[in-house]
Amino acid sequence: MATLHLPVPTESDRSLLGRIAERNEPALARLYDRYSAVLFAAASRIAGERSDAEEIVLDTFAQAWRDAGQYRPDRGSVIAWLTMICRSRALDLVRARGRRTRLLDAACAAEPETPPAMGTGESLPSGDVERIERRTIVARALSDLSPPQRQAIQLAYFEGLSHSEIAEQLGEPLGTVKTRVRLAMQKLRDMLRPYYTEPSA
């Protein structure tokens, strides 16, 4: 009998999703534990209402349960897939019911130099060291953007506004806003590329 001193690694997202595709409920529970807090925060920022955000998170994981077999690992990470589902549902909801003026006002009142949404929020429940490190790196990348670019990301990503909504709120030409969002995302991509696995075509 060998003596075992192996660290037991955390089961990977892909492995969990593979088991979810085989209708393994504990695997779904584990994926939920891992990502419900970040998805709930993302949904809350866009949807505003807590109850709506919870329904969005519920729908996101229910869709993951239903469509796990359709996930393509070569098209990106599991969390990118979940984030895409969550944001799509949140954006569909707010666009269906009309834009929330309250959150718009709050977003536009923010100083572009110190966007309050970025890097704030409760601490991660899991204490996942890698994730905390990534947060620090991403926060640093955001701080490297110019203040207008950071504001563009603030409004487009964190608040879920469209280009035209941002242009309207800031009173700037649509083309300027589009360029600003694009350059900000390109810059983030260039800075953060080492921290995700590049999807294949």
Partner: peptide
């Protein structure tokens, strides 16, 4: 979308 996922990790809030 990977960038979106990294940005999502900037905030967390328990449901």
């Amino acid at each position: 979308r990977e960038i979106n996922a990294l940005l999502a990790e900037q905030e967390s809030r328990l449901p």
